Simulated scan of single mutants.
Amino acid sequence: MILYLDFLIALVLAEQLVLKSKDASFVKDYGEAIDKIKSILKYTVKDKTNLLTDRTQYRLVLSQERNSDNLSDLQYALTNFNLVSIEYTNKENLVTKRIIEPFAILNSENWYLVAWCRLRNEFRFFRPDRIQKMEILEEKFEPHKMTLQEYFDKYQ
C-alpha cells in the first residue's frame, strides 16, 4: 500500500502542476490519462487519490488563464525530431515565419520552447502563447547531441 501512496502523491502533485499550466493541450492530455489511471484503481485507492487531489495545491503560476494550446504538439515534434513551421509574434508585435527544431520545453510563470531557429541560425526561446500558426512538418532534423544542462552551460 505504501507504493500506491507514493504513486498517488506523485500523480496528485503532477496533476496540480498540469492544472496550473497555461496550456490547454497539457490539461486535456493529462486529464484523459489520469481518468484512465483512476478507472483501474481499486475503490479505496481511488478514494485516497481523490482526497489527495482535493487537499493538495500547487501555486507557482499566478494567472489561471490558458494562453496556449500547442505544447502537446511541440512535445511530439521534439521527441520525433520533426521540423516545425511557425508564425511567431515577438514582444514588439512583429510577426515572422520560422522553421524551428524543438529542443526543450521549460516553465517559469510561462511556458518556453527552446529551439534551433533556422532563420536566426541559433538557439532561441519562444513562448508558445506567441505562436500564431504552427505546422509540424514531415521533414526530420538531426537531434542535437547535448543535454539541457549542457545547453545552459554553453548558452546561458
Rank of each mutant, 00 (worst) to 15 (best):
D129K: 11
L119R: 12
N93L: 13
L51M: 08
L13P: 03
K145P: 02
I9E: 11
V12I: 15
L19T: 04
T56W: 13
K28W: 10
L71H: 10
M134D: 05
V45C: 03
D35H: 07
L8H: 06
L17H: 06
V84M: 09
T96L: 00
I86N: 02
L106W: 11
I40P: 00
K36T: 12
A10V: 10
S25L: 03
Q64C: 00
R55G: 03
L119F: 13
D47A: 11
P143Q: 12
D73G: 06
N70K: 11
E138N: 11
K91L: 12
L60P: 02
Y4L: 05
E101F: 02
I9Y: 08
E109M: 03
E92K: 11
F141I: 02
Y76H: 14
F103P: 09
L13M: 13
I99L: 09
E139Y: 04
D69F: 01
R66N: 08
D23V: 03
L148W: 11
P128W: 00
K46C: 07
Q16P: 00
K20L: 04
M146C: 04
V114F: 12
S25Q: 11
I2R: 07
L106V: 15
W116D: 02
L51Y: 12
V84G: 09
S21L: 05
K28N: 15
K48D: 04
F152M: 15
P143C: 09
K22P: 02
N107D: 10
E65A: 06
I136M: 05
N82R: 14
K133Q: 10
K145L: 11
E65M: 03
Y155V: 09
L83P: 00
A24V: 07
Y76F: 15
E65F: 03
D69P: 01
K42E: 08
D6L: 13
S85Q: 12
D35K: 15
R55L: 10
M134P: 04
V61W: 00
N50Y: 04
M134H: 04
T44L: 01
R130S: 01
R98P: 05
L62W: 05
E87T: 08
N50V: 07
L106R: 13
K46S: 14
R124A: 07
N67L: 01
L60A: 08
A14D: 09
I37N: 05
K48S: 07
L3E: 12
L52F: 15
D54H: 12
N107Q: 15
T79H: 12
G31K: 11
E32W: 01
L5I: 12
